[in-house]
């Protein structure tokens, strides 16, 4: 996949979150965004996902311009699978219904076909026994895996994970990371924002380091973790890998 940013700027009120990013990121499957909190990782991901509009600049995904009008943006979003930090399942729907909704409502897949595809994923993620439970009856890890199933079921061109394990305990984190590694092995392309550095090191093809609204550096995971080029990244890695 090829992701290009040109003078990308995003502000919330007077606060500049992304400050004129120009970069070209190539990654066969997994791009991981790392960096200090407030550095703009999540915002960049939301812009790529078409959930926010840019203030200035453009984004191209595999050469195609990310639209800026609500109608074409909705179509663009429907082809991308997004998983948020937490609480992104609909609480009034069962696990099964949550996974089926984008298929039946957005992609016009017939009910029985949608059910079949949802069940396949539930089985693959070892969740078949929980198909008829509502989110409140499930653990955090189960919920997050169902959210991933909902994002994957539409066979998206790209998956986006926004800190998918930040709200989970270590055991549940492991469950979720296993699923993400599994998706990579299957050949799915995704962008992941995470603070789980060891996982980032293992799963990433390409790493981009964001600080103060800019991509301070980017490169292969191997190079980034062994020999970071900027002092900010060096300091960041020293701090987060210390303990």
């Amino acid at each position: 996949m090829k992701l290009e940013f040109h003078s990308l700027t995003k502000c919330y009120g007077s606060h500049t979150v992304l400050d004129g990013i120009t970069a070209q990121l190539n990654f066969p499957r997994a791009l991981v965004l790392v960096g200090p909190s407030g550095g703009g990782k999540s915002t960049l991901l939301r812009l790529v996902g078409g959930l926010e509009l840019t203030d200035e600049g453009t984004i191209r995904l595999d050469g195609e311009l990310v639209p800026t009008h609500e109608k074409s943006l909705r179509l663009y979003r429907s082809g991308i699978g997004t998983v948020f930090q937490s609480w992104n399942l609909f609480p009034h729907l069962s696990a099964m219904a949550n996974i089926m909704l984008p298929l039946t409502a957005v992609h016009r897949v017939p009910e029985n076909e949608a059910r079949k595809r949802a069940l396949e994923l539930l089985e693959r993620f070892h969740l078949a026994d929980h198909a008829h439970k509502r989110p409140a009856e499930l653990s955090g890890g189960q919920r997050q895996r169902i959210a991933i199933a909902r994002a994957v079921v539409i066979r998206p061109r790209l998956l986006l994970f926004d800190e998918p394990t930040s709200a989970l305990d270590p055991e549940m984190t492991a469950e979720v990371l296993e699923v993400i590694a599994d998706l990579k092995a299957e050949g799915r392309a995704f962008i992941l924002v995470t603070h789980a550095m060891n996982f980032a090191r293992v799963v990433a093809d390409e790493v981009a380091f964001l600080a103060q609204g800019r991509i301070a550096e980017h490169g292969s995971a191997k190079d980034f973790f062994s020999t970071p080029r900027t002092p900010e990244a060096t300091r960041f890695l020293e701090r987060v890998l210390k303990y």
């Binding site: 937490s86 399942l89 409502a105 909902r150």
Partner: peptide, 27 residues
Amino acid sequence: VGKSHLDSARAIGLTRGQTYRYVIFPQ
């Protein structure tokens, strides 16, 4: 209805009308 659910609805690609029908009204 929490803002995060509206966000999820947008991420899936639901229209405004579908968001009311499938997400907002039932809750």
